[in-house]
Computed example of a mutant assay.
Amino acid sequence: MRQNASAVLSILILGVVLFATAQAAEKKTLEATVNVQESIEKAAATSQKKIDAVADQADRMLTEYKLIMRQYDALKGYNDQVARIVRAQNEELATIDEQLLEIDTTNQGVIPLMGRMVDTLDKFVALDVPFLPDERSKRIEELKTLLDRADVTVSEKYRRIMEAYQVEMEYGRTIEAYTAELVVDGNKRSVDFLRIGRMTLMYQTLDKKETAVWDNDKRTWRVLPEEYRKPTMLGLRIARKQAPPDLIKLPVPAPEKAQ
């Protein structure tokens, strides 16, 4: 009986030892598993951080890329516009060069023409009825001075010459009365002049005692008879707008036969 009891006790002890050993092994296995799991979680967390960092960097790079692409598009559009402007300016410069060449060619003909126009006007005034001699001579001298000025454009010179021609044309269809000095036979005196177009130029002394008309063929003054004194006085008043228009008897040169 004692031997059986000892055998049972030995078996129980062995079972306890085996159970304890199994528990210890299981505990070690569990701890190892936990350690592995923790290592995996730590590695996953580290990897996630790396992934998050890479994702953030990718987002920044994508944002920078989009910004750079917008800047590129803007710069490309600007460069294209500048290129178009440069092409247009080059074309305009070529056109200007052609125009300058044409202007130079034109000036070669226009400038001598303007000189001849002023000379012609000077001769015309010299041969014309001698009304307003100082004013007309001064205008021509100013034109001659103007032609030699480098600071005045060709177009302005031409405009001034045409303006002078226009003034001379206006004299032919207007009447005028003015007082000025007259020198006859070395004697200077103030007289009233009456101009009717270019047909008649007369003067009357301020005391109304002498009336004369210009003879352009003989280039001299011709004293008129008494019958022209009052008509000349009336003509002077009409020209000064001191009397209404009226028919007056004044000497007019006979028309010349056309050649």
Rank of each mutant, 00 (worst) to 15 (best):
A32S: 06
G15E: 06
F19K: 13
A22N: 00
D80M: 01
D80Y: 00
S47L: 14
L30A: 09
A22F: 02
V54S: 09
Q57I: 05
R60T: 14
D73R: 09
I40T: 10
Q37C: 08
A83S: 07
L67E: 10
D56P: 00
V16E: 11
V54T: 08
A20H: 04
T46N: 06
A53N: 07
K76V: 10
V86T: 09
D80S: 10
R84G: 06
E26Q: 13
Y72V: 08
N35Y: 07
S39Y: 02
V82H: 03
A43M: 00
D80T: 03
R70S: 13
Y78I: 07
D80K: 06
Y78F: 06
V36W: 00
K49P: 01
I40E: 08
Y72W: 09
D52A: 04
I51G: 04
A24P: 03
V16M: 13
R70M: 06
D56M: 04
K49Q: 12
A43T: 02
G15K: 02
A53R: 05
L67G: 01
T63Q: 11
Q23S: 07
A44I: 04
S47H: 14
E26V: 04
L75I: 13
M69P: 00
A45M: 01
D56F: 01
T63K: 15
T63A: 14
A44M: 05
A24N: 15
K49M: 12
V82R: 05
N79R: 00
E41W: 07
Y78V: 04
E41C: 00
Y72A: 05
V36Q: 14
K49W: 09
D59S: 15
L18D: 04
R60F: 06
K27G: 11
K49I: 15
R60S: 15
G15C: 08
E38Y: 13
I51K: 05
A55S: 15
N35C: 00
A55F: 06
G77E: 00
K49V: 14
Q37H: 10
Q37K: 13
R60W: 04
N35K: 13
T29Q: 07
A74R: 02
A22Q: 03
A43P: 01
Y65E: 13
Q57W: 05
M61P: 01
M69Q: 15
R70L: 08
K50S: 11
L67T: 08
D56W: 02
L18T: 13
S39A: 15
I40A: 12
K27N: 10
E41S: 12
F19L: 13
K49N: 12
K27W: 10
K76P: 03
L75C: 02
E41K: 11
A44C: 03
M61F: 00
Q57A: 12
M69Y: 04
V82N: 05
K42H: 02
K49C: 07
R84P: 00
K50E: 14
K28C: 02
I40C: 01
R70W: 03
K76Y: 12
G15Y: 02
K76G: 04
